[in-house]
Design a protein around this nucleic acid. Sequence first.
DNA 1: TCGTTGTTTAAGTGGTGACTTAAATATAAA
DNA 2: TTTATATTTAAGTCACCACTTAAACAACGA
Lengths: 103, 103
Amino acid sequence: MDPLKVIAVERRRQILELVWRDELSAGDIAARFEVSWPAISQHLGVLKAAGFVTERREGRSRLYRANPEAMGHLRAVIEATWQSRLDDLKAVVEADPRNQEDQ
Amino acid sequence: MDPLKVIAVERRRQILELVWRDELSAGDIAARFEVSWPAISQHLGVLKAAGFVTERREGRSRLYRANPEAMGHLRAVIEATWQSRLDDLKAVVEADPRNQEDQ
DNA sequence: TCGTTGTTTAAGTGGTGACTTAAATATAAA
DNA sequence: TTTATATTTAAGTCACCACTTAAACAACGA
């Protein structure tokens, strides 16, 4: 799934926040939300497939944790496609006299 | 609409790229895609409502252009919620010996 | 004012995906 | 083995939204 679509869903961003610092089991994560466990499990599957989290099995539990590589990569993608042009654009727009008359 | 949902749609990102440097009319934009004009008009409405583009009327045309303020703001939001923690996280994970055994 | 051009608004359709409950799987404990 | 615990997979539902065509609106020229 498109990484931007993955993080466009608020529930997944909430999950990511939870596993940002702490490695948590699927159950621990699910317990913090008022949706069903399968719903969380599905989100975890999406996050894992997109590389945003890693999974580690320990006994009966599956422990999840944010994957900083993927997070950094996403940021790089956003910056590569947007930020560099943003700097150019800002200069262009600010030098444009029309910039005073149109909101 | 949630800014992340706005940019999660590829067509809207394509439109944004087009109006990044050049101010284009709705018709010029629509002509570059193989979808109907109303489809593009709707996307422009979403982009405008979210502040990603500005609209300027000139005669019968409506001219659109990327709004660097909003773009910069989005980037700030992403960095604020993610980047600062990313730095912390990277250190935490790299110092974790389990990082060698689980992929 | 009447058509023409540029664009949006209206109304409807189809696909996707976030959710549900029920069933299946996996591991550990009794 | 059997049972309990942890989690996923299966199957189905519902809402949303990107698209469509048709109609409306706006601004200009004849």
